[in-house]
Simulated assay, not measured.
Amino acid sequence: MDSLLKHMVDMTGYRDHTMLDISVISAVQELACATQTRMLALTTVRGQIFVRARAIIVAGGKARMEEHQDPSLHGDPLSDFPALAACIARHETSCDALSADGRHLLWLPIWIGDQITTCLEITDPTPYTGATIQVIGGVVSVYRNFQNLLDYSERDSLTGLLNRKTFDDQLAKILQTRGDADPEAARPAEEERRHQSNAERQWLAVVDVDHFKLVNDKFGHLYGDEVLILIANLLQSSFRSQDRIFRFGGEEFVVLLRSITLDNAQKIIDRFRINVESHEFPQVGRVTVSVGFVSISAYEAPVIILGRADQALYYAKSHGRNLACHYDELVEKGMLTAVASNDTAEFF
């Protein structure tokens, strides 16, 4: 009982989803004495549901987030998990199955109303008793309620994307992590960029809907809101599960891309831009977006990083729109003047 209470205290002490996931699978792993526990993300792409591990803990190890480098893969189709698919179709709270190698799998879908985007998976050589499932179900209920509270405080009410305050917190966390772990962070920012031009980096992209005022003026704000909601959906389906997408307000969005090379970042951003261009928006018709993006350096202030992405965005919008522009490339070609770093800049 003391262990259970400690885990409950730990879970409700966190203020972000990543640490909440880590906390809950750690608690379940200990309480269930499992071989492996995973938090699964369920995403819907063009009407099909895919399953992908978001966090994992193996017996004897530490809980960790799962990183997925290939942005073109959404995970495994839900149809590959027939017992889980049937459980979700019946709106049930748990189900189990025997894997091909003889392990027992217990799934606990985490329902929020009629929606499900998360599922707890527990693996063990032996089946669990009803009492154990009941205790784990109680942990899941606490997780679900606290996840609801976090969502309410972190999300934009119109699009469901993360909000501006959450962006400030997550960018600060990325910069802190890079500063603590990356020896290159001690280099001056421009030298760091040159040194790691082909390395995996973190990226910040600013997205703006082209001619959005004309949409509101011509079709009204209800259709304008629908365009923003559809843009948000295209952002979520175009970027990877480990990337973070935010609505800044109005028609502006920001994406934080995790651990990816420049070439791949450019491909993902262009894929999103083309997805918007080719999408048929009800009543409105064709809509395009402009994007400016820049690599994130722990040596630079957040306001400088965001300002550079904004500069690249402004270049895209003033040179025909429907473009994705990389700040450093524009500077190297003499198309932009570099924004000077300012170590004393305030955080927004």
Score class of each variant (00 low, 15 high):
P302Q: 04
Q196P: 02
A186M: 12
A338E: 15
R273T: 02
K317D: 02
D80N: 12
I49L: 08
L150A: 11
S94R: 15
R321Y: 02
E300W: 02
E190H: 07
G307H: 09
S3W: 06
I296N: 02
G137E: 04
K317M: 09
R38T: 08
V339Y: 09
F253P: 01
V284T: 06
G307K: 13
Y314S: 11
H91V: 09
H104V: 09
L78H: 15
R64W: 08
Q48Y: 11
S26H: 09
Q69K: 15
F212S: 02
W203G: 01
C87H: 04
L98G: 05
E332K: 12
G75M: 04
P127N: 01
M19A: 11
L306Q: 13
V51R: 00
L120G: 09
A309Y: 09
V9S: 07
V135F: 00
D225T: 01
M8S: 07
S297L: 10
V339W: 02
G138I: 10
V135M: 05
Q196I: 00
V24Q: 05
D16N: 15
A265D: 03
F239L: 08
R103Q: 14
R103E: 11
F212H: 03
W111K: 15
L84M: 13
A232E: 03
V58L: 05
V142S: 09
A97Y: 12
K165P: 06
T12N: 12
M8H: 12
